[in-house]
Design a binder for these strands. Structure first.
Lengths: 191, 191
DNA sequence: TCCCGCGGATGACAGATGTCATGGGTGTGG
DNA sequence: CCACACCCATGACATCTGTCATCCGCGGGA
């Protein structure tokens, strides 16, 4: 519904034409190629296995002439960082005024980058993700309230190892327990 | 951005006119009255103190002739229940096709109720919220990973009492610890 | 009147969690 | 070759968490 609504909004602009819409990240590259798109507008949170950031990287790799605009619900600095690493040209949050959307499309077509300066500052001041891949796995597995034993079974680890990884993750996030660590890592876009 | 986009979408329909838009729940009743709206379209998750459900109840109380359509990101059965209790005429989730939005507006104007039958069945089979107000408070306070001592201080309770309330909440949600209880209660729309 | 649910509290106990020291193996870069 | 980071594990320990029994006071129904 939101996708179709944003398409309607862009369609009202005389100089912009919506040439394709897809629901899943896996379908982005194909649709963009078939429709001859000049700009791809992607949400980070999408159904399916592929996130909008993955789709952005795929577009950048396979259709380098296509500009990528990321629109997301959550203005997490970590998202911005990862979007830039994935090769995005613009990064917008959904609670920005609607006019910024069309404006961003026009500007990336002129070769400009479009980034909220406040968010950019936050992303830079925050520092990079300090978690190792395994710490991320364990933290993600702990997010739903699983017991250490469950996590150990799911990741084929010993229970003590799970405790060790969680302990380091808790310290790196400056949290006091796993729940706080999960919340902080989520806010920072590290999961 | 999403609000303006949905307004653009509805504006494309010949028989529907968007007469007002507001960002915060507190402004809904005033704007609906001033604009002479026939239908109020409300999101549950809104900035400001007033949720969309509160706004729905306010509209129902002060402008009884105005139909209320709830649109929400999360199709939680508890949300549906609370929306109906607040006097909503329609309940839509945002990942439904865009056409359903205009269709719902037309149908509530004809006096019909619009509810996804799958969600209705889920809401009925799930049973009502079993939590007492205090259990809800404590569970909400525990959601961010606070220690028992923090929660006790924040709610002016003893630490043991916090443990007791959490224990009963954990049993009522059939969870194994507080984190799981929080997740389940959130999914059910009990918080 | 009596019972029951709710709010609030205490104490005791078992189990889960977080920390630390310490060990091993692997791979990568200087 | 050595240092270093990462991965995985164990054991010990302190603390936090979850459960249970038990108590008090209050108010609403039967």
């Amino acid at each position: 519904m939101v996708r179709e609504a944003l398409a309607a909004l862009l369609g009202l602009e005389g100089d912009i034409e919506v040439v394709a819409q897809v629901a899943r990240g896996e379908d982005v590259v194909g649709a963009a190629r078939d429709a001859g798109a000049q700009v791809a507008l992607l949400d980070i949170e999408m159904p399916g296995a592929m996130t909008g950031l993955d789709a952005a990287a795929a577009v950048r790799a396979e259709l380098p002439q296509v500009r990528v605009v990321i629109v997301t619900t959550f203005g997490r600095p970590g998202y911005l960082r990862r979007a830039m690493e994935a090769g995005a040209d613009a990064f917008l949050v959904k609670d920005a005024p609607a006019g910024q959307l069309a404006e961003a499309v026009r500007r990336v077509l002129r070769g400009e980058k479009v980034i909220d300066p406040v968010l950019a500052a936050a992303a830079l001041s925050e520092g990079a993700d300090p978690l190792t891949p395994r710490e991320r796995d364990v933290l993600r597995a702990a997010a739903d309230g699983s017991l250490n034993a469950d996590i150990a079974r799911r990741l084929h680890l010993s229970e003590g190892t799970v405790r060790n990884y969680l302990s380091t993750a808790i310290q790196k996030t400056a949290a006091r327990n796993r729940a706080e660590a999960v919340r902080i890592a989520l806010e920072r876009g590290w999961l």
